[in-house]
Computed example of a mutant assay.
Amino acid sequence: MGLRKGYSTRSFGKLAFFYLTERFETHKFHEEIVTATHSYNQYASNPIEHPLTTIDRGFRKVECTTDLSSFEPSEVTNLILNVNDNAVNTFIQHIRRRLSILERPLTTARGDGKSYIYSNFNPKYAQMALIILRTYYNFCFPYKTKEGKNTIIATPAHD
């Protein structure tokens, strides 16, 4: 596909950049509303399919609620190519792994273990636990960088 359009690269990332830059010459996430006194941009709910897929998520659409009319197409392309939901997915996985205390364990019929399958929980305490976990995750949770060093993100809590 890239060779037909005159691009000599075989890099999926570069081809996606070229593709999106061309698309954003005409594609808009907002529509212009013109009144008698002024004009403004309004969110149009006009998603675009992300050109790079992942094995675990497949094709996905990207939308932008922020008005990007002052950005050049190449700048919007960089934003779209760098968007992902990895941080949100990681946080949800931490919730799943760390908040089992909200479930009331039941002993199995054989009595050899605990089961959480029919557990009840109080939504009030679930919300409190999520707030605590979110605060810990945002201000205290260390993570490994690509260099493999254990570091902590500089946040207002560390100042």
Rank of each mutant, 00 (worst) to 15 (best):
M1K: 00
M1V: 12
L3S: 15
K5P: 06
K5A: 03
Y7Q: 07
T9M: 02
R10E: 01
R10V: 10
R10Y: 13
F12C: 07
L15A: 06
L20Y: 10
T21L: 04
R23I: 15
F24V: 04
K28S: 14
F29R: 07
H30R: 04
H30Y: 03
H30E: 02
V34Y: 09
A36P: 00
A36W: 08
S39E: 13
N46G: 02
P47N: 02
H50W: 07
P51W: 03
P51F: 00
L52C: 08
T54S: 08
R57S: 00
F59K: 15
R60A: 01
V62L: 15
V62Q: 12
T65L: 11
L68D: 02
S70N: 04
F71E: 10
N78H: 12
V83Y: 07
N86L: 11
N89S: 02
I92Q: 14
H94T: 03
I95N: 10
R96T: 08
R96E: 10
R98W: 11
L99Q: 07
I101V: 11
I101G: 03
E103W: 13
E103N: 13
L106C: 12
A109L: 13
R110W: 01
G113D: 14
S115K: 05
Y116N: 04
K124Y: 06
K124L: 08
Y125V: 10
Y125I: 12
L130G: 10
L133I: 05
R134L: 05
Y136D: 01
Y136K: 02
Y136Q: 07
N138V: 08
N138M: 07
F139R: 03
F141P: 00
N150W: 14
T151W: 04
I152F: 10
I153Q: 03
T155S: 14
P156S: 07
A157I: 05
H158E: 03
H158M: 00
H158F: 02
